[in-house]
């Protein structure tokens, strides 16, 4: 079975701006998280989801943690649950900083998209290096990645798991020629219409 690559031009977008331009409390973040989950459930979003911060001037780290720290924490517990790709868009420098701190504390990573492409937020250097290599490889397997980085296949698999958990990497599953399942991976493309930053 091969998953269909999500159409990057048509993401399900959740606009965080609906909650204000300065986002402070954990209570508000809980509301935002519930709404995000409801939006995704209603849209039966299994493709690309853009969590868009356009118009949000600043958010506290507590808000970021209760909203997206928890969301990415939930995603990381189930690799196969939808959505396939989650991209943070419209992050200004201040919100990027808040997200970085929040994700690093939870040892999580996320993918963000801007006009320059897709990159990781909160990732250690080794995972950033892996993501760059993944982008260069196109569609690849763990063995390809291991060869490219000069690391063992189990090590490559561990890194890929973290990236799939963050919905930063699309995982395709198929039945191998010799039986059993086989995964291949590719990095997502940024949505066709990128929002401008606040």
């Amino acid at each position: 079975m091969t998953q269909v690559k999500p159409d990057p031009a048509l993401p399900t977008t959740y606009a965080v701006r609906r909650h204000g331009t300065f986002l402070a409390t954990r209570a508000l973040a809980k509301t935002a998280l519930r709404e995000l989950e409801d939006t995704l459930a209603a849209a039966t979003a299994d493709g690309t989801v853009a969590i868009d911060f356009t118009g949000v001037v600043a958010m506290s780290i507590s808000f970021a943690d209760e909203f997206l720290g928890r969301y990415y924490g939930m995603l990381s517990t189930s690799l196969d649950a939808p959505p396939a790709v989650v991209l943070l868009t419209g992050l200004n420098d201040d919100n990027f900083e808040s997200m970085t701190v929040c994700l690093q504390r939870r040892e999580l990573v996320a993918a963000m998209a801007n006009a320059e492409g897709v990159r990781l937020v909160g990732a250690p250097a080794v995972l950033n290096q892996t993501y760059h290599a993944a982008g260069d490889l196109g569609r690849f397997t763990a063995v390809h990645l291991a060869d490219r980085l000069g690391i063992s296949a189990p090590n490559a698999n561990n890194r890929l798991k973290r990236l799939v958990a963050a919905r930063a990497l699309i995982r395709h599953r198929r039945v191998a020629e010799r039986g059993g399942k086989e995964f291949s991976y590719e990095t997502p493309s940024p949505p066709a219409a990128m929002p401008s930053v606040a």
């Binding site: 331009t21 300065f22 986002l23 402070a24 409390t25 209570a27 001037v57 600043a58 780290i61």
Partner: peptide, 30 residues
């Protein structure tokens, strides 16, 4: 609480440099 934080974020934006306004908002928000 959040509408007060929003008002104070805007107050900082209108009165202070961007970096200091952001610092003030983050402190106030916490």
């Amino acid at each position: 609480a959040d509408s007060i934080a929003e008002s104070l974020g805007r107050m900082g934006e209108s009165q202070l440099s961007n970096r200091t306004a952001m610092a003030a908002f983050h402190g106030i928000a916490e």
